[in-house]
Amino acid sequence: MEYDYFTAIMRFTHVVVGVAWIGLLYYFNFVQVPALKNANADGTASGITKHVAPLALLWFRWAALATWIAGAALLGANFVSAFSLDTGYEAIGLGSWLGTIMLFNVWVLIWPNQQKILGMKPASDSEKTAARRIAFLASRTNTMLSIPMLFLMTNGLSHKGLIGL
């Protein structure tokens, strides 16, 4: 019997780094953003913005990229079929599109704007205010998209028999 160790390792890697990515996304949305609102009120926000946020963002953005690369490797020869939503690839294909949009949001909308917010890149107060709103909405968009993305990504495990997708 021939084994496919490469695909097995890519599947495992995709899940592990995917947990890191989406776990940190949920941390930002469900923990850090509400906590910062309270921390700003009592003057303790700098602990989060100086020590926690940069490190969380570091793991977050690279885990996002690693998740996409491992996912693409896992699709392998089925990559084009998935992104073309060919028959039999509808669920994983749309899941892949959602994951790709989310990766774009991380690197093009969230990270460059967070650099301005956290003072890693020079920005005026008005630029920071705009950056805050863009980064917030991109992060919330990813949280929203993560729900259908995860549903469709895990499709192969159960839904074919359960809901006929």
């Binding site: 929203m144 729900i147 549903f151 469709l152 809901i163 997708l165």
Partner: peptide, 30 residues
């Protein structure tokens, strides 16, 4: 109308609704 993404609950509800819409579209039109 308020943006549902401004609240955590609104974000989750929007995600669940989007999931139902996607499943319906995939099952019926793609």
């Amino acid at each position: 109308m308020k943006n549902p993404l401004d609240s955590i609950l609104g974000t989750i509800v929007a995600g669940v609704i989007l999931t139902v819409v996607f499943v319906y579209l995939l099952k019926n039109f793609i």
